[in-house]
Simulated assay, not measured.
Amino acid sequence: MNAWLVRGLGMALIHVVFRALLGMAIAQWPLQGSTLRWLSLFIVIALAAIWGGIDGIRDRRQFPEPDDGADLLMLWLKAAVVGGFVAGAASWLLSLVPALELTQQGLFFEITAGAAFTILLIFVPAMVAVTVGRFLTSREQRKHGTAPQTPSHERHHEPVPVSEGYDSPTTQHAYSGAAMTVEESDADTTVFPAIDLGKREQ
């Protein structure tokens, strides 16, 4: 089974269970309805954040380089969409049971506005936790020196063609020019007679 489908169905189950528990709790303590709603909302958000944080930590440990990590954004977006629609449809279906009061809205509301709200409750906390989990893991790796770093002496440099130094056209031209100079120095030269400065003054 795909990872996003597992997370989507898991979060849908969490939402349906807590909506059922919330309905039963409000029936028992009607004066505490507002507090119970906020408490259940906080628990659902916390569970999505914990699951997303675990994914972020696991991904950074498996792929220390940020560019090599998994696409958790699309994974949790698909999971949130599945969770939102499944939770909405399941809540409406279970509300037909007299003993359960999950919702008083119709099916159309649950798979549109209700599903959109559930998608946000799943996606936003999960992605925030993924980012935090990756950041904390990267900082821990840098602190303990386990993050991969490329040493300065292993960095890529362009190779220098030293093996062609004596065979390059420029070097051959320089050597041929030097040989021509030596040959010209061995040629016959004109010897001028010495000038007697003493006789010239007389």
Score class of each variant (00 low, 15 high):
Asn2Ala: 13
Val191Ile: 13
Val82Glu: 04
Gln62Val: 11
Thr170Arg: 03
Leu94Ile: 15
Glu140Tyr: 04
Ser40Lys: 00
Leu31Pro: 12
Ala99Ser: 12
Ser91Tyr: 00
Gly84Asp: 02
Ala27Lys: 04
Gly23Phe: 01
Gly52Tyr: 00
Arg61His: 13
Leu136Asp: 05
Asp186Glu: 11
Ile14Asn: 05
Pro30Arg: 07
Pro98Glu: 02
Ser185Asn: 03
Arg139Tyr: 11
Val97Leu: 13
Leu75Gly: 05
Tyr175Met: 04
Leu39Gln: 11
Leu36Pro: 03
Ile26Asn: 04
Pro30Cys: 09
Asp167Asn: 06
Glu140Gln: 09
Trp76Lys: 01
Leu47Pro: 07
Thr146Cys: 09
Ile26Cys: 06
Leu96Glu: 12
Gln105Val: 12
Pro125Ala: 05
Met180Ala: 13
Ile50Asp: 01
Val97Ala: 07
Ala46Ser: 09
Met74Tyr: 10
Ser176Cys: 13
Ala87Gly: 04
Lys199Tyr: 15
Ile119Trp: 00
Gln141Lys: 01
Ile50Tyr: 07
Leu72Thr: 01
Phe42Pro: 08
Ser40Ile: 03
Leu75Asp: 02
Glu164Thr: 15
Thr190Lys: 07
Ala3His: 08
Leu73Phe: 14
Val81Glu: 06
Leu121Glu: 05
Leu77His: 08
Phe123Leu: 09
Met74Ser: 12
Val132Ala: 01
Leu100Cys: 12
Trp76Arg: 00
Thr171Asn: 09
Gly69Pro: 06
Arg37Gln: 15
Gly114Asn: 02
Val82His: 03
Asp196Ile: 04
Ala80Ser: 12
Gly33Tyr: 08
Trp51Gly: 01
Pro66Thr: 11
Leu22Ile: 08
Met11Val: 05
Ala25Pro: 11
Asp68Leu: 15
Val162Gly: 13
Trp76Leu: 09
Ala79Cys: 14
His15Gly: 04
Ile14Thr: 07
His144Tyr: 03
Ala46Pro: 05
Met11Phe: 11
Met11Pro: 02
Val191Ser: 07
Thr171Ala: 12
Ile50Glu: 00
Trp76Asn: 06
Gly145Cys: 10
